[in-house]
């Protein structure tokens, strides 16, 4: 039996609120695990505890109680970190190093000799499309460029588990597309990816499963397919021509005129086949059949403890 890439069990974490005040509990018993080769998205509004969860997973923070294991090992062990790659939120870099030097150092930290390290650095610069700026100091990089170098350093040691904190923020659409491609290619190589995000369309596109963090609790873990399937609500069929007979026949359905066509909306479990067969029989032309599926974003916003309107607005801004 193989060990899971990541197992988080009942993790509690608190911080000192101030010099003279007590501790504030931020994580209240987080439990989840990742299967080999899956992409898992951790979602939640700002301040929900995503970063704290990820930092505990990668061993920067020690949980008050509960355990984290990476392939069965504690994240504080060097062995576990050989299998781990991490991209922090707003990563900071040594401004005086060039992109290449930084990646060489990252490779050396994975125990590579200097020749191997420089070969690996070149390879990664290629992967993240940064070869042109390889010899510029990092302090002259733009945010998007740094994010790419950040991704490159996260995968320098060919890790089996890659943890990315808000990897898509700060990237332009091209950068996002490229990052998604890198992540999907990691999945193809059988790597496991955990990332946090608040940009839902991207999550929908990439993830196998998502987990929702709210105020330090994981409120939902679900496969994206299941979520979206639950969100398939209705099917619209658009007809042209004289449909009066059809309308009479299906008097329980609502038909509306729209842009010269007649549109009928069937509920989630409606008989689409039957309607189409009847339409043909009654001499209507079918100009379109469109299933309506809620996006992940709509589904999550609908959840009873969903995101507030104000957050929603800021999220839309971010997404644009």
């Amino acid at each position: 039996m193989s060990v899971l890439p990541l197992k988080v069990e009942n993790v509690y974490k608190s911080f000192h609120a101030g010099l003279f005040s007590g501790r504030v509990e931020i994580l209240h018993g987080i439990t989840f695990s990742l299967n080999p080769g899956e992409i898992f998205g951790l979602l939640g509004r700002n301040g929900a505890g995503k970063t704290t969860t990820l930092k505990t997973i990668v061993g920067l923070l020690t949980p008050d109680s509960g355990t984290v294991s990476i392939f069965g090992m504690s994240p504080s062990s060097v062995q576990a970190r050989r299998l781990l790659g991490f991209l922090p939120e707003h990563p900071y870099f040594y401004g005086y190093l060039t992109g290449r030097e930084f990646l060489e150092m990252a490779a050396a930290l994975h125990g590579m000799g200097s020749r191997e390290a420089s070969r690996r650095a070149d390879e990664l610069l290629e992967t993240v499309n940064m070869t042109h700026a390889a010899d510029k100091p990092l302090r002259k990089y733009s945010k998007g460029m740094l994010q790419r170098i950040g991704l490159a350093q996260a995968i320098v040691g060919a890790p089996q588990l890659i943890v990315l904190d808000e990897p898509l923020s700060g990237l332009d659409p091209v950068g996002r597309r490229e990052l998604k491609e890198v992540v999907l290619s990691l999945k193809k190589q059988g790597r496991t990816v955990l990332f946090s995000s608040h940009i839902l369309p991207d999550v929908e596109e990439m993830c196998d499963r998502v987990g929702i963090v709210e105020q330090g609790t994981l409120t939902l873990v679900e496969s994206v397919d299941t979520l979206l399937e639950r969100g398939t609500q209705r099917t619209e069929v658009e007809l042209i021509g004289d449909c009066s007979k059809l309308i009479n026949h299906f008097n329980k359905l609502s038909f509306v005129k729209r842009a010269g066509a007649t549109v009928v909306t069937l509920p989630r479990d409606g008989d689409v086949q039957g309607l189409i067969a009847a339409a043909i029989k009654h001499g209507c032309h079918i100009s379109g059949v469109k299933p309506y599926r809620k996006t992940l974003e709509e589904l999550l916003l609908e959840a009873p403890s969903g995101v507030s309107e104000q957050e929603d607005a800021s999220r839309k801004e971010d997404t644009q």
Partner: peptide
């Protein structure tokens, strides 16, 4: 302060 340690101490070095 600059949190460059996040990049270093999550690599395989004690």
């Amino acid at each position: 302060q600059n949190k460059t340690v996040y990049l270093i101490l999550t690599k395989p070095i004690s």
